[in-house]
Design a protein around this nucleic acid. Structure first.
Lengths: 139, 139
DNA sequence: ACACCAGTTTACGTTAACGTCAAGCGTTTT
DNA sequence: AAAACGCTTGACGTTAACGTAAACTGGTGT
């Protein structure tokens, strides 16, 4: 075992380009559970919490709410899942995966549409330039 | 030209599973510009506005803010873009496309992680079931 | 000892994206 | 004509996700 690389809240915040407040808020919402040193004095974050936080931020960028993200995290938290609800967890996970697939599809669709427009526009732009070039020659 | 199939606000809302209020809000934010019959009396929506609205909703599901969505829409609105800013539009469009690609990547990444967990869990679940089966046999 | 820094809690403020409700208007059904 | 229906414009309420400011605490350099 290596001595765990624990970092402070502001250090972690800076690393991930967010504010300490945001991190505390996520803890308040039950998304993070950092080490509270000696019965309250400071929070310290190890690699596990960092990984979670990165997951949270990714989820946010992809349009999931904190509530949804919490569900996902809780779902795959072995400690909490404790046997009993294994089947549920698996079922729920499949549902989430289907949702993800839908989102990826939609994302790809949107990309296609943007690409279409982009093509039209670049064509148009090219025409304009050609025209300007001709005018320049005529001068 | 077919007589345009114009529909009322609540009709369109119902079709897309949102409320009229939402549609009005999007108009207020400059995302929609429906026909206002006879100098104000009712809004009517044709296929163009419907298409826009669908784009907006898709954008929302994918984690874009209304402001970002407005930028995209305005960007590719030929009427507004009116020549002058063609180059900017194209450049901005490329930026958006890169962002989209990043999001698709992240989405795929997230899917991969969830799949990993899912696999672990289904394996675990299978083991449990096997065990239970054995116990049953031993009885 | 004193100042300073980094962290803490508490609490109120803010913004986006609507929800909700009131009051009024135009048509059409009874 | 009265009532009902659907739409309209305010205008205020609500929720999520933080921002921000105040007041306190615990170590650290000088």
């Amino acid at each position: 075992m290596v001595g765990q690389p624990l970092v402070s809240i502001s250090s972690l915040a800076q690393e991930l380009c967010i504010t300490p407040r945001t991190i505390r808020y996520y803890e308040e919402m039950g998304l993070l559970t950092p080490v509270h040193l000696e019965k309250m004095s400071q929070r310290l974050y190890g690699p596990r919490e960092r990984a979670r936080l990165i997951l949270i931020l990714r989820g946010k960028r992809l349009g999931f709410s904190l509530a949804e993200i919490k569900e996902m995290i809780d779902l795959y938290d072995i400690d909490r899942t404790e046997g009993l609800q294994l089947e549920r967890a698996v079922a729920y996970g499949e549902k989430r995966l289907r949702e993800l697939d839908e989102k990826i599809q939609e994302m790809t669709l949107l990309k296609g549409e943007l690409l279409d427009y982009q093509q039209q526009f670049t064509d148009l732009l090219k025409k304009c330039k050609d025209k300007n070039a001709n005018v320049a020659v005529e001068d």
